[in-house]
């Protein structure tokens, strides 16, 4: 069976500056795949290339369909949720409105999904009419995940969910990611915190200045002494 997401020789640039020099990667349906690497390695750009929010070329296939010329809005409609750097929430809107926007590309009633979100995150239910910007960082990350859940995507692109959060909240976030994965969501997660990402992901890619330096199953990468020292920093 073909993988859900395939990138082949993808090049991306910001103006004259190239950020990706030909990346190839695959994500199997139902997997959690991590993208690791140092600052500026092109992790965020990889996700932006998939959701077409950066100028890119090369082949990107989702469920067998080429995303080359599909605009960012339509990509969301195809079932790819991108939680970007900074979470992409609407801090001025209420929590409920953020959740409703998550389901923008869907038709039909939201009531049962909203109830599940509120059951899972009672806090979001209690404060649903407050502005999203009034939540703490960890709560905002949970809202971002809850909103992605409302979109019911087949593929979730997660950009550094651990950024700026306390360790205890980071493990909570990754527990939720696993839960979402169990619900049938394929996840491609970008992380600086390689340790926790490798624990959750089944396989991982390590990027280095815009190219794939290494890839393989998480367990293997974690065991490899040289990988640990040069890329994972412990």
């Amino acid at each position: 069976m073909a993988p859900l997401l395939e990138l082949h020789d993808v090049v991306a640039s910001y103006g004259p500056v190239k950020a990706l020099h030909g990346i190839s990667l695959e994500v199997e349906e139902g997997a959690i795949v991590a993208v690791l690497g140092a600052n500026g390695a092109g992790k965020t750009t990889t996700l932006r290339a998939i959701s077409n929010t950066v100028r890119r070329s090369g082949e990107i296939r989702f469920d067998g369909r080429s995303l080359g010329r599909t605009c960012a809005e339509s990509i969301a409609g195809l079932g790819i949720a991108h939680v970007p750097e900074g979470r992409g929430l609407f801090p001025e809107l209420t929590i409920l409105e953020n959740l409703r926007l998550g389901a923008y590309t869907r038709r039909g009633p939201l009531k049962s999904d909203l109830e599940r979100v509120y059951a899972y995150f009672p806090l979001l239910g209690r404060r649903r009419n407050e502005q999203a910007g009034s939540l703490s960082g960890g709560e905002q990350q949970m809202l971002a995940l809850a909103r992605a859940f409302m979109q019911r995507p087949r593929l979730l692109l997660l950009d550094e969910p651990s950024l700026g959060l306390a360790p205890i909240i980071v493990s909570e976030i990754f527990r939720i990611v696993k839960e979402l994965n169990r619900e049938g969501m394929t996840v491609l997660v970008v992380e600086q915190n390689a340790h926790i990402a490798l624990q959750v992901a089944s396989s991982a890619y390590v990027l280095e200045v815009g190219t794939v330096a290494l890839h393989g199953p998480s367990a293997e990468l974690e065991r490899d002494e040289s990988v640990r020292r040069s890329y994972l920093g412990y």
Partner: peptide
């Protein structure tokens, strides 16, 4: 709601498919 979202954060609105 989508119109308000587009006015406030166009980039984020695009990502949810608006």
């Amino acid at each position: 709601l989508a119109m308000r979202a587009s006015a406030l954060r166009p980039a984020a609105a695009r990502l949810v498919g608006v």
